[in-house]
Computed example of a mutant assay.
Amino acid sequence: MSTLMLVATMLSVVNIVLLAALTFIWGRNYRTFRTPLILGLLIFGAVLLIENVAAVYFFFSTKMLYSGDPGIDSAVTILRALQTVALVSLTYVTTR
Results as ranks from 00 to 15, higher is better:
46 A>V: 01
51 E>F: 02
41 L>F: 15
79 L>E: 07
25 I>K: 14
79 L>C: 05
4 L>S: 13
92 Y>D: 12
6 L>Q: 15
48 L>M: 04
71 G>E: 07
19 L>N: 00
57 Y>I: 14
56 V>R: 00
86 A>W: 12
49 L>Q: 00
43 I>C: 01
62 T>F: 10
76 V>P: 02
30 Y>M: 05
8 A>P: 04
18 L>I: 03
52 N>R: 03
22 L>T: 01
82 L>R: 14
35 T>C: 04
96 R>L: 12
58 F>L: 10
90 L>Y: 04
80 R>A: 04
38 I>T: 06
6 L>S: 14
75 A>V: 09
47 V>Y: 05
51 E>Y: 02
32 T>W: 05
9 T>C: 10
50 I>G: 11
23 T>V: 09
91 T>S: 15
56 V>P: 04
60 F>I: 10
63 K>M: 10
78 I>C: 06
85 V>T: 03
54 A>C: 10
10 M>L: 11
42 L>C: 11
36 P>E: 10
46 A>C: 07
21 A>I: 11
95 T>I: 14
36 P>K: 02
14 V>C: 11
31 R>G: 12
76 V>L: 05
57 Y>D: 06
22 L>E: 03
2 S>D: 01
62 T>E: 10
13 V>A: 12
41 L>P: 02
6 L>E: 15
8 A>Q: 01
48 L>Q: 00
56 V>C: 11
10 M>H: 10
57 Y>L: 11
66 Y>I: 13
26 W>D: 14
18 L>C: 02
2 S>Q: 03
96 R>T: 11
6 L>I: 11
81 A>F: 13
81 A>Y: 06
49 L>G: 03
50 I>D: 08
42 L>P: 02
7 V>D: 15
62 T>V: 07
72 I>S: 06
91 T>I: 08
26 W>K: 13
10 M>G: 10
72 I>Y: 10
80 R>E: 12
35 T>L: 01
65 L>F: 07
10 M>D: 07
21 A>Y: 14
66 Y>C: 08
26 W>E: 12
92 Y>C: 10
82 L>Q: 08
70 P>D: 08
31 R>W: 15
3 T>M: 12
13 V>L: 15
14 V>H: 09
8 A>R: 01
71 G>Q: 08
78 I>F: 06
59 F>I: 00
87 L>G: 01
7 V>L: 15
42 L>F: 06
63 K>N: 14
47 V>S: 14
14 V>S: 12
12 S>E: 05
48 L>F: 11
66 Y>A: 08
75 A>C: 06
62 T>W: 05
86 A>T: 11
47 V>R: 05
48 L>K: 05
52 N>F: 00
34 R>W: 12
10 M>T: 07
53 V>H: 03
30 Y>L: 04
19 L>T: 01
61 S>I: 09
35 T>F: 03
60 F>C: 08
32 T>E: 15
18 L>F: 00
19 L>I: 02
81 A>P: 07
51 E>N: 03
29 N>H: 13
84 T>E: 08
